[in-house]
Write a protein that binds this DNA or RNA. Structure first.
Lengths: 232, 232
DNA sequence: ATTACTTAGTGTAAAATTTACACCCTATAT
DNA sequence: ATATAGGGTGTAAATTTTACACTAAGTAAT
């Protein structure tokens, strides 16, 4: 034990998959590394967990540093701890999923010094990423994909007011398959977690659709099971 | 310990919820600590992740040290990283669930030096545990509870040959509710992951039930979705 | 103002799944 | 032989899921 502690020099980090929706396309935030190893490769945004912050806080901080956004819901989905996943030493990483409203994000500002830029990469064009980040991305995306079949969790990606078609389109993009319009609307409205607004789409060159908003209060009532334990 | 910890960065540990079934009762393996902090409290078995082992390997090692069992399927379910979850320093812990066949476990042998004993505690009598281990246990148990509704994963708890009533009883214990016998059998057989054996229970003082075994090959066929990404 | 175009919005019947429910069977023990 | 304790089985009703196609409303072009 003593010996263990003395030799101890592992590092704990956070990596984030930050989803955003832009012109109907699902994208995630990537950075381009400007340090070895994997210099000039694309990678998931991540950083080291500091002594005085919880892992949830670290995830929030990383998101804030890159997007200027705070208090976004992020969900831890897996911890990657293979011995040699990082070539220069032992790094265990906790991976988080987050979803943000692209239009609410300020300019991207990569303040981390190891990144030369941050940008949105369409999920369907995902290149090979640095380290084991491709694997992390796959697992995180799969997690979201399987989760939305049980529980509507994607409203954070849409504007505050959205049409049912936009919502359906988002589902189709995530699940990568077409859904039946009538069945989709029936099911979504049956969840009873949307507010029908007295407003319609504007600026479209066709019949304007009704706008809806997500009602977190109603949502919590029906999906309490998932909330039965606190954070961390 | 305290002084030592202050000199180092975060420590990663593993904590395991090891489920076993004994006389129809669901139990988990606990240890009694013989070191401060929380001396003489009960805690989940756990240990520090060493430099040269993956977190999965560390989980396997801990299980082996306590039970003598190897190559048991363990599933990581959450990582706990609050700043002050350990009173003497920063310790981030990855929590695993495992299920073992109680009758196949050798004598329990707590080789870890911080534990004075290891023993099986019925889930229904769970006391307050050291550190945040009560919270970890709740989350892990909830994970299993929600998972078995979608996917049969509890065969590791039963003997190799078991009756459908034993299986149903196990579900009832985990879900903490009664199930309909006919519907349960119908559904379980429809999964088509069991082999009906040409054997019956022995040594019972009533009509002997047919024995079944779990067919991992058939199982993999039907639940591939969950296996689409490798470990770690 | 007519027409063409594009997306919005709606209902029903069939199929599949889930639920509720009760009695006879068989082995053992006395 | 009989009492006991769990083993084993089917069907109808209810619910959920699926498949499927047309009309409505607004915009844009002529």
């Amino acid at each position: 034990m003593e010996k263990l502690l003395q030799n101890f020099d592992s590092i704990f980090s956070i990596d984030c998959i930050i989803f955003g929706l832009n012109e109907g396309e699902l994208k995630i935030l990537l950075i381009e590394r400007n340090e070895d190893p994997y210099k000039s490769w694309y990678a998931l945004p991540g950083n080291i967990v500091e002594q005085n912050e919880s892992i949830d806080d670290a995830a929030q901080r990383i998101l804030y540093e890159l997007t200027g956004l705070k208090d976004i819901y992020m969900e831890q989905f897996y911890t990657f701890g293979a011995v040699k996943r990082h070539p220069s030493g032992r790094v265990i990483t906790v991976a988080y999923n987050a979803m943000i409203r692209l239009d609410s994000a300020k300019e991207l500002k990569p303040v981390t010094n190891y990144a030369s830029k941050a940008f949105w990469m369409p999920v369907k064009d995902m290149p090979e990423l640095a380290f084991d980040h491709t694997q992390i991305f796959n697992k995180g995306f799969e997690k979201i994909r399987s989760k939305i079949s049980f529980e509507p969790i994607v409203f954070e990606l849409l504007p505050e007011k959205f049409t049912l078609s936009q919502l359906q389109n988002l589902y189709e993009v995530i699940l990568n398959k077409e859904l039946d319009k009538r069945n989709f609307r029936k099911k979504m409205l049956a969840y009873n977690i949307l507010n029908e607004l007295n407003e319609k789409q504007e600026g479209v060159s066709f019949r304007a659709a009704k706008l809806y908003s997500f009602d977190k209060h109603k949502y919590d009532k029906f999906f309490q099971k998932e909330l039965s334990f606190g954070k961390d």
